[in-house]
Amino acid sequence: MLMALGAGAILWQMNKPRRKTLGVVLAMGGAVEPADLELEGEEVTFNLSDGSASPGWIVTGDVANGPAAVVVHGHRDSRFGSLYRAQMLRPYCSHIAVFDLPGHGDAQAKRCLMGDREAEDIHAVVDGLPEGMVGEAGLVLLGYSMGATFVLKAAALWPELVERGGVIACAPYRWWDEGLRGQMKRRALPTWPMVPLVAGVLHAASRMNLSLGERPGFDRADDAAALQSPLLVLHGDEDTICPLSAGQAIAEAAPRGELAVIEGGTHNQLLGADYDAVHTALSGFFKKLGKQP
């Protein structure tokens, strides 16, 4: 009974993460609008795949004829955290869109579905971009942690989204349970038998057409292998949540994949660990866009 309750508690936290809303970010002293990071941006509302509303911004980049980008945040993050990634992309893009995934931030949808529908949400956001925002330079999908797995899945399902652009995966996990195991180990919690129990519940829910999370068994390296567009994987060598081996396998599987190992980068502090290394990798990636392999 205790094990079943524990598995239920894990699933609850996965589906109902603590939201990083406007009030929470204000209390933390974080950026709550583009201007806080010296960015220009227009506040917008996107409709996700179920029709629910998700607030966001479209940030203006420095390259008028450059690619557009959509940023997808990780678990327990929100569009506010994505503003820092938009700041990172500004020197390379024309516009950068950020939004809240379901169950996160101030999104109307109440539950995170852990990959069961989020790829469709990304497609819906792309469809909802202003006319002309995605020009000849194409579109880049950037995802962080859980968001990285979602953009890999979306690009594999709909390669036309990034046909002239590409994908940037920051600290991605390869298998469904890598992030969960990492978080549990960090909190000194036993992964057995809890993780197998959670997997069993997800399998059962899938058979009953219940949305609790993506069915275990996926391999994001398979999604990467389907990509014909450039893929950049940014991974920290001190990431204890998603192992570096996951990023390596994903990058190696992609026909046009490249891995940039960020020295000193952890899971939550990856992009700020070495700005020069990150921007060297980004500069090389954006130079590849639109070029035939």
Rank of each mutant, 00 (worst) to 15 (best):
A97W: 02
L39F: 03
Q108C: 09
W57L: 11
V63F: 02
M146G: 12
M28L: 14
I58T: 03
E42Q: 15
L83I: 03
L11V: 08
G138T: 11
R79A: 10
R90V: 09
V126C: 12
I58K: 01
K110T: 12
E38W: 00
K153Y: 04
A124Q: 09
Q108G: 07
E38N: 13
E33H: 06
G132C: 09
N15M: 12
K20F: 07
G41E: 08
V24S: 14
A31Y: 00
R76G: 01
V70Y: 01
M133H: 08
L139F: 04
C93R: 01
M14L: 15
F46W: 08
V72F: 02
K20G: 02
V70L: 10
A64D: 13
H123I: 08
G81P: 04
R85P: 00
L26C: 13
Y144I: 15
G135S: 10
A9I: 10
V134R: 04
P91D: 14
L89C: 05
V98W: 07
A148L: 07
G30P: 05
Y144C: 12
P102L: 12
L89N: 03
H104V: 14
A31W: 04
G143E: 09
L83R: 01
R79D: 01
W57H: 08
D116S: 14
G103C: 09
E40Y: 06
I10T: 11
K153M: 10
L129V: 11
G128M: 07
L11C: 06
R85I: 09
I10R: 00
G56I: 11
L113D: 05
P91L: 13
D77H: 00
I10M: 15
R85S: 13
V63I: 13
K16N: 15
F99D: 04
A86P: 01
A124P: 08
H104Q: 15
D100V: 05
L39G: 03
H123S: 06
T21N: 05
P34Q: 09
V98Y: 06
L139V: 03
A97K: 04
R90H: 05
A119F: 09
A31E: 05
L89Q: 04
A9V: 11
A137E: 03
Y84P: 00
M88D: 12
D36P: 01
P17L: 10
P102I: 11
E131N: 11
T60R: 15
A69I: 01
V71W: 03
Q87F: 10
P67D: 13
L22R: 14
H75I: 11
D36C: 06
P34C: 08
G143I: 12
P91N: 12
L152W: 03
S78T: 04
A97V: 07
V151I: 13
G29Q: 08
F46D: 00
V125E: 05
L139Q: 02
L26A: 14
P55A: 12
A148G: 13
G30Y: 07
G128W: 03
R19E: 11
A9E: 08
D62C: 00
T21W: 02
E118D: 08
M114T: 08
A35D: 10
A27H: 03
D62H: 07
G147C: 12
L48C: 07
A154P: 02
E33S: 08
L152T: 03
M114E: 14
V126R: 06
F80M: 04
